[in-house]
Write a protein that binds this DNA or RNA. Structure first.
Length: 109
DNA sequence: TTATTGACACAAG
DNA sequence: ACTTGTGCCAATA
């Protein structure tokens, strides 16, 4: 069927790839959009595997519900923060973005 | 094969 | 309002 783990990864890649420039979304939002509200951690895992898969997706636009760049450690240097800043994302902290201002919902599109 | 960990989120005290 | 604990699913050791 269409419900295999590989599809889940593919869906995550697809949704993340749809994040508009200068916008950010959360893991829970993505997992909820995929139909699995309690799979937020898997989203991060999928993104982590995306690197291994060679998938080039704007994973830097995915932050946690608090807007914290929890995955910055998995990016080379501070690519994640620099990239977000370059896109005009407002930072409420050194590694926290204004999620309320730049939040994007996959269903909103 | 089982146990532990992990780029999160929510409920309860 | 803040802190602590549990749930989720998959991957790695």
């Amino acid at each position: 069927m269409s419900n295999s783990k590989k599809d889940y990864y593919q869906k995550v890649y697809d949704v993340v790839s749809r994040i508009p420039y200068g916008k950010v979304t959360t893991y829970g939002t993505i997992s909820g959009y995929l139909g699995v509200r309690s799979g937020a951690r898997m989203v991060g895992y999928a993104l982590n595997n995306s690197i291994k898969n060679g998938e080039e997706i704007p994973a830097h636009r995915v932050v946690n519900r608090l807007g914290q760049l929890t995955g910055r450690a998995y990016f080379p240097n501070d690519t994640m923060r620099e990239r977000l800043k370059q896109e005009g994302v407002r930072f409420t902290g050194d590694y926290t973005v204004d999620i309320k201002k730049h939040f994007w919902d996959p269903a909103d599109e």
